[in-house]
């Protein structure tokens, strides 16, 4: 494999036990092992995490920014999906 073909990996870090992995950046590596090794040096020099995911960037399916309206706007007018939509008398407790 030519170095020019080293794939891009997206790096996700779990900041501490109990939290989800969060995207922190990307890097090129010959394979996933090397991606993890390098991610450790590039993204966790100051105790930023307890776990690393390296995901080949080519494996990520992403929504198209131009579909933003059709994908997400329908949720905006559905206020009845939120608890504050429902009126409960102040006297009723624990609800």
């Amino acid at each position: 494999m030519d170095r020019k073909d080293w794939p891009l990996f997206e790096i996700f870090i779990r900041p501490k036990n109990g939290l989800s992995h969060k995207h922190v950046g990307s890097l090129h590596a010959a394979d996933a092992h090397m991606a993890l090794d390098n991610a450790r040096d590039v993204y966790t020099r100051r105790g930023e995490g307890v776990s690393i995911w390296a995901v080949p960037a080519a494996s990520i399916a992403a929504s198209d920014p131009s579909d933003k309206a059709s994908l997400f706007e329908p949720a905006d007018d559905k206020v009845y999906r939120h608890p504050t939509f429902y009126d409960i008398p102040a006297d009723v407790k624990n609800i």
Partner: peptide, 13 residues
């Protein structure tokens, strides 16, 4: 080093 990393990755695959 870059060549070795490529070769190592290929071998592992």
């Amino acid at each position: 080093v870059r060549d070795a990393a490529s070769a190592h990755a290929a071998k592992r695959k």
